[in-house]
Every structure is written in C-alpha cells, then in structure tokens.
Design a protein around this nucleic acid. Structure first.
Lengths: 338, 338
DNA sequence: TTGAAAGCGCTAACAC
DNA sequence: GTGTTAGCGCTTTCAA
C-alpha cells in the first residue's frame, strides 16, 4: 500500500480511503490511486486488515466429514445463508473423532473466524463446556450441551415417530429400525453416549408403536451398524439370515437406507411390496434411489437460517438468553413406502 | 500476550518463546508463563501471527458446490492429504457460476492461504490467466489452462472409452451417452465451452465405437441435461418416449447415472438385462445403488496426492516447470452392467 | 536465558 | 479532501 501511495503521490491513508470508498476523495486523486493499484498489481492484504479490524467476515462450519452427504448438503445451506448476510463460509472437517474436533477448535483456530458453527458429534459435555466463547459459537446436534451455548437440534424423536407411524399405518407390523454403533438390541448394554441422535430416533420408533397400542419386538432393533450404507447393508443381511423377517425398515439415516435397499435387493425382496423402507435426512439423492426413498426431512435450510440469524444478532451485539431450537420435521413419502 | 507477560513478570518475548518452544527458557520462568496463560485463558491470535509470519498453514480448496458428491469426496481426499503435511484444509464454494468463482478468488481472498487448489469449472482461459500467482495455485479440471499453472486433470476421454468399450464388449449396440448442458446432439451447435469435461467424455464414447469399427448413432448423444440426477432422468425419459431404445447408457457422472437408473425403473426396464448402465466418478454411494452402479474411478486420492505434493514442493521454494498431470482411470464393474 | 526495539500491512482518530 | 500518528498482536533480530 505504501508503494501504491508513493506512485500515486499520496499517503497510504488516501489509498485506503479510495479502496474502501470511505471518505470523500477527489476524483483526480481517486483516478491516480486506482491507476497505481493497477500498474503495480496491488492487492490488499486481508490478514493485515483483519488484524486491524478484528473481524474477518467469515463464518466457519465444522463438520465431522465432508463426504457424508448430510453434512455436504448442510454446508451448502449454510453457505447460501451466510452469503445472504455478506459473509463467507468456510468449511473444515473435524474427522468425526474427538481428537479431530478438538484440534480443529481449540488451538485458537476458532478465533480466526467471526463465528463458528460446530456440528458436535463426538464431543462430551465437558469438552464443549471448556470451549471459550470469545465469539459466537452455535452448536448443532443432539448433545446435552451447556446452557450458555446457542443450540439448534433436529426433531429426531418426532421425525422417527412420523416415519414409523407411517409404516404402521400402511399395515406393517414388523418394523425393523437400523441404527448406529451406540444402539444395540435391548439389554445388550451397548456403549452409550457419543451421539444420542440415533438413540433418539430409535426412541421415536418405540413411541410410534406405543401411539397405536403396539409393543414392538425389540429384536427388530438392528443396532451396531456403522453410519454408512455398508454397515446398514450388513446388518440387514444378517437379520434376514437370522429369520427376523421384517415387513418394513426404518433406517436412521438416508445413507443407511441406501444400504438397506441394496441388502433387500441382494436378498431378492421387493420394495415396497415385500418390505417398505423409510430413511431420515431426505438427501437430494433420495429422490433418485430405486425405488424413490421415503424420508424424514430435517429442514437443513431452516437450521441454517436459524443458526445464522442467531450469529448475526450476536455479532450485532445483541444480548439474549442462549437460544435452544428444534427443527420442525416432515415426512416425504416416495416409492419405497407408497 | 502483554497481559500474560505482565502477570508472569516477564517480557512478551519470553511468553512467545515459551508458547513456541523456540529458545531455551528457564524451567521456573516457563512454569510461571504457562500459569499466567492458564489463569488469563489466553489464546494466541493467529491473525497476528500470520501477519508477522506471512504464512498460515492452511490450504484452500475451491469447489463449485459442496453438495455435489464428487466434490465432497474430493474435499475429503484433500483434507487427509493436506493434513499429512501438517496443514489444514479449508473448503469454499464458488457457486459454479463464473461470478462466484471469481469473487471467491480475486478479492485477495486467495492471499490468506498458503496455497489454493481451484476446481476451475466455469472459468475461461483469460480469467484464469488473470489470476496473480503470488502463491501456489493448482488447477483441477479440464480447462485448457495457461502454461504457468500447475494442472491436474482426469483421464476423461480414456475413462469414457473404457466404459463404452466395456458396454460394447458385452454386446450392446445402441449405447446412449447422457451428457451435460454444453453437449447437444451432433449438428445442434450447442453452446460450447464452459467446461469441456463432458465433451471429452462424449468424445471417448465415439472413440470406443471407432476402436471396434462401429459407427455410433449420433441421436444417442443425449446432451443438454443439467449435471444432476434430475436432469439425466428427464433426458432419458424423453429419449425413451421418442423411441430411441438404447440397450445401454453411459452417463458422464454418477449423479446423472442415478437419474438414469431412476428413469429406467420408471419405464419398467430392467438393469442390466434390458439396459446396462455405466457412470463416471465412482462415488462411494455407487456401490449401493440398485443395482450396484458400474463406474469409472477417476482416482481422487491420486489427484489429491499429486496436487498437494506439487504445492509442498512449491512452498519449499523448489523451482520447476509447471506440472501437467492426468489421472490414471479405472473401470469398476458392478451389477448395472455385469 | 531474557528483553527492547522494530515492523508485518492495515485503518481509526484526529489534525490540517 | 488529505495526511499524521498510533497501534492491532505477534516474532525476528540483536543486545544484555
């Protein structure tokens, strides 16, 4: 900037003013400065500006993995919403492991953003609690999180209930639920707690049965799968081999539902005639599964809108009690359960 | 840092030294400093450090969209590879539009990273050429890019050739190719040029036919679809309605192939018995399509490894001619064409 | 082993 | 309208 100033025969300050359009600058001066900028190929140093300004116009979204489609789509929603407010979104991957999440956060890496949205799978209450909150931090997910953080969660139990009620409503009586690692068949004492999302969804399965006065067969809780299509496929094939004969399957994520569809196809069962299937997440691709996958829509855009709105209010200096929101969910019925 | 120094009764410099473990610092001093850090909850200001150091240990990957699975999986590969070299990866979305890409890049936003990997869909030669290269910039994609940039591209024509040759080899004689917006049926004079990826893949379709002495029916070039499952589904349904009766379909992306599978299912055609299908990208999910989708694997990990290796060498100050690499491709055969 | 000075590139505040 | 001064928080350099 000094070079530009010298070349244009003005002070650094004038250059800065021209570049930011802040003060009224004489037309001739302006032109000379812009010429100098051009000739020297000058580009402003954002790092310096930030150091000075104490803000970066950038919000970070930390997700466990980029390639879990749910998070990719969530990131897209956030990018749009953040852009609507004149900021940029940057996405970083925590690696789903506790360590990953922390190293991405703790080492003051946080501080280089105006605000952080953290999808907190894998962090314990205490770890979240230990995060300093020099800037707005919004937590996403199902953790029981410290009161002082803003928190947006999904209507997990409610969504699962909708899905299973729909399956029961169309006549299914042996609805299996395909769930993640931390949820085993009743009484297995599976290791609890990393992320209760799936537990909540399985809970919705129970509630739905209770709603209509049915007692579900707990052996139909197919837990322990990884949160992947592969994991779900294996667990379903095993269940079929064991003679569990479900007439419907609720998978706690769409990715897992794809694995369920693949497994049923492997086994020569027709969807939805022999077995109906419903997922959770309503990924864009679910419309194109074969058959089209019924799924619970968790309202990603809604999540992004709410989270960003909270962030903007905090950044504007507004003071208010920590926000605690739960998304409205909605069941989208397609061929897999029609 | 001043506060910490004061509290510990030392100078800022000593605090800095303790925090960075750079100089030998007396054990007692060290302890006092760390105590002060703890008590004050001090966290280093990375922006300031960066301003001083001129480096940020962060590499940016700019992709058109987060929620195109190909890019999400690419980002994951890059995150791993970059982490292997002790840096962080940050992903930003360009919006696929020319404007998006430029605003993400030009305004010196680039400069805040040690290096940038740009998936250049949508930029013209001149626009890319105008990018200053104060730091390493690796281009991904099929652009004809200025010589001075390092460039990693996919073996598009070769991959498509493999795919179509496979289909012809198993007896197909009416292989349709489902392609993107810029590729119309021969003679339509479709607007060329935004991104020649798809053109290259359709070219491979021609080459494969030529390889075995066949002349393809150009009406089987189903171009003009958006690069989405939806677009592909529509274009295939239209082609079926028009009586084109393909006995195999090569889709230029896996996402589009999902749309093809959905369309064939809609039309009551069996895959692979009535129509075989092959995609391109080998997304993780393609193994779980129904039936499993045969696809060309473009070697994302290979791309990431090469690109990051180039970056590291440039950052280490090594001088060498711009690198120009093409990934080795490989056909993965699954149920959709078995 | 520790510290003082200087400066990375920018801009707010205040002259002129 | 334009310039001067000071300082954001850090680290390199060199002296003590």
């Amino acid at each position: 900037m000094s070079d530009v100033a010298r070349r244009a025969g003005v002070s650094k300050m004038t250059v800065s003013n021209v570049l930011n359009g802040r003060t009224r600058v004489g037309e001739a001066t302006r032109r000379r400065v812009l010429e100098a900028v051009d000739e020297l190929g000058y580009e402003i140093n954002l790092t310096a500006r930030r150091l000075r300004a104490g803000r970066v116009d950038t919000v970070a979204l930390i997700v466990p993995r980029f390639d879990h489609t749910y998070f990719a789509e969530l990131a897209t929603s956030f990018a749009t919403e953040v852009a609507n407010h004149g900021r940029h979104l940057v996405v970083a991957q925590s690696g789903a492991s506790k360590e990953g999440e922390l190293s991405e956060l703790s080492l003051a890496r946080l501080r280089q953003y105006d605000a952080v949205v953290l999808s907190a799978v894998g962090l314990t209450y205490d770890e979240v609690d230990s995060l300093s909150s020099t800037q707005p931090l919004v937590l996403l997910g199902e953790q029981d999180v410290p009161q002082r953080f803003d928190h947006v969660s999904i209507g997990n139990a409610e969504g699962a209930r909708l899905a299973v009620r729909h399956l029961l409503g169309r006549g299914a009586r042996r609805v299996a639920v395909v769930d993640g690692p931390s949820v085993g068949p009743a009484g297995t004492g599976a290791p609890g707690g990393l992320d209760p999302t799936s537990g909540l969804r399985t809970q919705g399965w129970r509630t739905a049965h209770a709603d209509v006065g049915l007692v579900p067969d707990e052996r139909l809780v197919l837990g322990g799968a990884l949160y992947t299509a592969q994991g779900a496929r294996e667990v379903v094939l095993r269940a079929l081999a064991a003679g569990l004969a479900p007439d419907a399957v609720f998978a706690v994520t769409d990715d897992m539902a794809y694995g369920v569809l693949a497994a049923l196809h492997d086994a020569g069962l027709r969807v939805p005639q022999d077995v109906a299937v419903v997922g959770f997440d309503n990924l864009r691709g679910s419309e194109f599964a074969v058959p089209g996958l019924s799924s619970v829509d968790p309202g990603r855009d809604w999540i992004a809108r709410q989270a960003v709105s909270v962030i903007e209010r905090r950044l504007a200096g507004e003071a208010f009690e920590p926000v605690r929101l739960t998304t409205p969910v909605e069941l989208v019925v397609r061929g897999s359960s029609a």
